[in-house]
Design a protein around this nucleic acid. Structure first.
Lengths: 258, 258
DNA sequence: CGGCTCGTTGACAATAATCAAGCGAGGTGG
DNA sequence: CCACCTCGCTTGATTATTGTCAACGAGCCG
């Protein structure tokens, strides 16, 4: 797949910016009602589209952004870099994710965000977000919720790293990404693009590259999932969930007044 | 130390409730100015004091609280429980921490919060928090910031678990807790109470209890830190920070307009 | 044709889990 | 008061998991 064509995007009937806003709204609506005024505020806050090559930082660790970034299409990862170059990826993001809403309040980024594939992103100025926080309390709570879910994902990854066997941990990651893509209708027939290298995967699981390869083979040997050429196909979804001890509660995919 | 006397508390010149609010305000002021109106809102939101025995849940995984809890004194831990009973602790909390602000928006708790020592907590009703989110946008952002810092701590723990050697990981935990207590003047002369079992410590580090004991001995052998009888004493703070690769940026302890 | 990256394998060393046992402090009941 | 218990910490022996080093082949690109 050529790098110039970002993957995992919605069919671009409308402008990519509008489509990105729509993905975010779709995701928020999964958790609570979003009013037309709030939808308008979301559409209004986005500034433009920026392309980011695969492997490039969307936000650098230690930087001080003045706007927060919405992922329009492609896959991105949140990571912490240690001094000697070791990298730990702490979350994966899919289109429609507000990947660095964090910088709105953290000011100095404690972590970075990298494009796992070619990506397009849309910036939302912090000044506009501050205005939203004054004018739209409910939308603010929904944005807050968004970052709380990021935290819940971190906790689930911690449990995976500390207390799950490595095959379960890898299976859990696949379940999580499938679930996030499924909402966006990007995973028809349990099949989806996820074009990352085994080095990226190792940095997600906290394993060495070599061992990651062996764990992946072990997972393939279960015949529950296929992972080849950047395409993942799940053959046995219930089996994979069981292996992973996957309970999607932490993704908060139910509508509630919030 | 008798269980009836919670440790790590501020000298109770004033009521414990007021002292707890003061700790929270102190912590927020470390990150931005807090107006008198905001201080009043914080004092006003707290409902009363509840005692929790050591080992008891402050908030149970899977529960649906109607108020969020402020830790008044004692130590608490955020944890994820797997079906077979394995537990991963994902964060440690100290007095003045708003330990389950999360439940305000997550509604169903994806994780639990346990009292590591005898604790006292103060509930803040979700209805009051919702009112604050309408009336006090800046205070709302500060509360939001609080949960963002929790997320940053999770990320640092992920890096520790996945990419640091276990001694460094353990040293990092000590650095983090020392830093959090130091703000509250609860760690004079690099010495502080931290009365947890090695089983708790193992659940924090994602190691077995036996291996945790051995790593702790390895850390003791560096002579940089003493850990005995629930009291930690740091002899070589710079050395410990270096060993831990500890960079406190992620704790966001600088005042900025937020 | 090189020269790259990525996935893969083998051999070996390091790290961590498991199982089993003992020790010491503190509490309880006779 | 002491015997006895429990809990937390510690140790040894063994096994399992994971990391490291080295090498190779396939595919891609200039």
């Amino acid at each position: 797949m050529p790098q110039s064509e970002p993957i995992a995007s919605k069919p671009a009937r409308v402008s990519p910016l509008a489509a990105a806003a729509a993905s975010l709204i779709l995701k928020l609506q999964r958790r609570d009602d979003i009013s037309p005024e709030e939808e308008a505020a979301i559409h209004g806050m986005l500034g433009g589209i920026i392309s980011v090559d695969q492997g490039q930082d969307i936000v650098a660790q230690g930087s001080r952004p003045t706007s927060s970034t919405l992922l329009v299409d492609g896959f991105a990862a949140r990571y912490v870099l240690l001094k000697d170059g070791r990298r730990q990826i702490t979350a994966v993001h899919v289109p429609g994710d507000f990947v660095d809403l964090h910088s709105f309040l953290l000011k100095t980024m404690d972590h970075g965000i990298v494009a796992l594939s070619a990506c397009r992103v849309a910036p939302a100025p912090h000044a506009t977000l501050a205005e939203i926080s004054r004018e739209h309390p409910h939308l603010t709570r929904m944005f807050w919720l968004n970052t709380l879910i990021d935290g819940a994902i971190h906790r689930e990854w911690l449990a995976g790293m500390g207390r799950r066997r490595s095959v379960s941990h890898m299976a859990h990651l696949i379940c999580e990404i499938y679930t996030m893509l499924e909402i966006l209708n990007l995973a028809p027939d349990f099949t989806f693009f996820f074009p990352i290298t085994q080095r990226d995967l190792a940095d997600m699981l906290g394993l060495s590259e070599v061992h990651t390869n062996r764990v992946l083979q072990e997972l393939r040997d279960t015949n529950m999932v296929q992972w080849h050429g950047g395409i993942i196909r799940i053959f046995d979804w219930p089996g994979l969930q069981t292996l992973a001890e996957f309970d999607p509660t932490y993704l908060q995919m139910f509508r509630e007044p919030r």
